[in-house]
Measured scan of single mutants.
Amino acid sequence: KLCLVCSDEASGCHYGVLTCGSCKVFFKRAVEGQHNYLCAGRNDCIIDKIRRKNCPACRYRKCLQAGMNLEARKTK
């Protein structure tokens, strides 16, 4: 099974979405830290295992598009 954000090996369902541990922690920190990420490109950066750290804005956008939600952990 692959992470729906970066296509690395998924470690489980986190915040409602099948993700790897790295994307799970990234999403939690992004939401709780209330980061205002900005993409230096055109908001279409490739997010994969190798390049997932290059653009936090696009990675966060991809987390949201996949359906990640901090509240999902509280309902399970």
Score class of each variant (00 low, 15 high):
residue 17 V to W: 02
residue 51 R to D: 12
residue 36 N to T: 12
residue 11 S to H: 13
residue 29 R to Y: 08
residue 54 N to V: 10
residue 63 C to F: 03
residue 12 G to I: 06
residue 39 C to F: 02
residue 14 H to V: 03
residue 30 A to D: 02
residue 17 V to R: 05
residue 6 C to S: 00
residue 73 R to D: 06
residue 60 Y to S: 03
residue 43 N to L: 06
residue 63 C to P: 01
residue 67 G to Q: 03
residue 20 C to E: 02
residue 29 R to G: 08
residue 1 K to C: 05
residue 65 Q to P: 02
residue 74 K to C: 10
residue 2 L to N: 15
residue 52 R to Y: 03
residue 73 R to F: 08
residue 45 C to N: 00
residue 37 Y to R: 04
residue 40 A to G: 09
residue 67 G to Y: 04
residue 56 P to D: 15
residue 50 I to Y: 05
residue 37 Y to C: 04
residue 67 G to C: 03
residue 75 T to W: 15
residue 66 A to T: 14
residue 34 Q to S: 10
residue 24 K to P: 06
residue 7 S to G: 13
residue 20 C to S: 00
residue 55 C to T: 01
residue 61 R to Y: 07
residue 55 C to P: 01
residue 56 P to M: 09
residue 26 F to D: 00
residue 56 P to S: 10
residue 19 T to Y: 02
residue 33 G to I: 06
residue 60 Y to E: 03
residue 73 R to V: 11
residue 59 R to K: 03
residue 25 V to D: 13
residue 8 D to R: 04
residue 33 G to K: 14
residue 57 A to Y: 04
residue 41 G to Y: 06
residue 18 L to R: 10
residue 64 L to R: 07
residue 54 N to L: 11
residue 42 R to S: 12
residue 13 C to G: 05
residue 3 C to N: 02
residue 42 R to T: 14
residue 56 P to I: 04
residue 64 L to H: 07
residue 67 G to E: 04
residue 58 C to P: 01
residue 10 A to F: 03
residue 58 C to D: 00
residue 42 R to Q: 15
residue 1 K to G: 06
residue 44 D to I: 03
residue 65 Q to K: 09
residue 12 G to N: 07
residue 56 P to C: 15
residue 46 I to F: 15
residue 69 N to Q: 08
residue 30 A to N: 04
residue 73 R to H: 06
residue 27 F to P: 02
residue 21 G to A: 12
residue 4 L to A: 06
residue 3 C to D: 02
residue 68 M to A: 03
residue 6 C to K: 00
residue 67 G to I: 03
residue 2 L to R: 14
residue 24 K to Y: 13
residue 65 Q to W: 08
residue 17 V to H: 03
residue 68 M to V: 03
residue 26 F to Y: 03
residue 62 K to W: 03
residue 24 K to G: 11
residue 68 M to Q: 00
residue 56 P to L: 09
residue 66 A to I: 04
residue 13 C to Q: 12
residue 53 K to H: 10
residue 9 E to Q: 11
residue 7 S to A: 15
residue 26 F to E: 00
residue 6 C to V: 00
residue 40 A to W: 07
residue 45 C to G: 01
residue 57 A to T: 02
residue 1 K to S: 08
residue 32 E to A: 05
residue 9 E to A: 14
residue 48 D to T: 09
residue 39 C to W: 00
residue 54 N to G: 06
residue 34 Q to K: 10
residue 14 H to R: 05
residue 28 K to M: 12
residue 13 C to S: 10
residue 40 A to Y: 10
residue 10 A to S: 07
residue 40 A to D: 05
residue 65 Q to S: 12
residue 74 K to Y: 14
residue 14 H to I: 05
residue 52 R to W: 06
residue 31 V to C: 11
residue 75 T to P: 12
residue 33 G to T: 05
residue 14 H to Y: 08
residue 58 C to V: 00
residue 60 Y to I: 07
residue 68 M to C: 06
residue 16 G to P: 04
residue 12 G to L: 05
residue 38 L to R: 12
residue 72 A to G: 11
residue 14 H to S: 07
residue 66 A to P: 01
residue 30 A to F: 05
residue 19 T to L: 05
residue 40 A to Q: 13
residue 72 A to F: 04
residue 44 D to P: 03
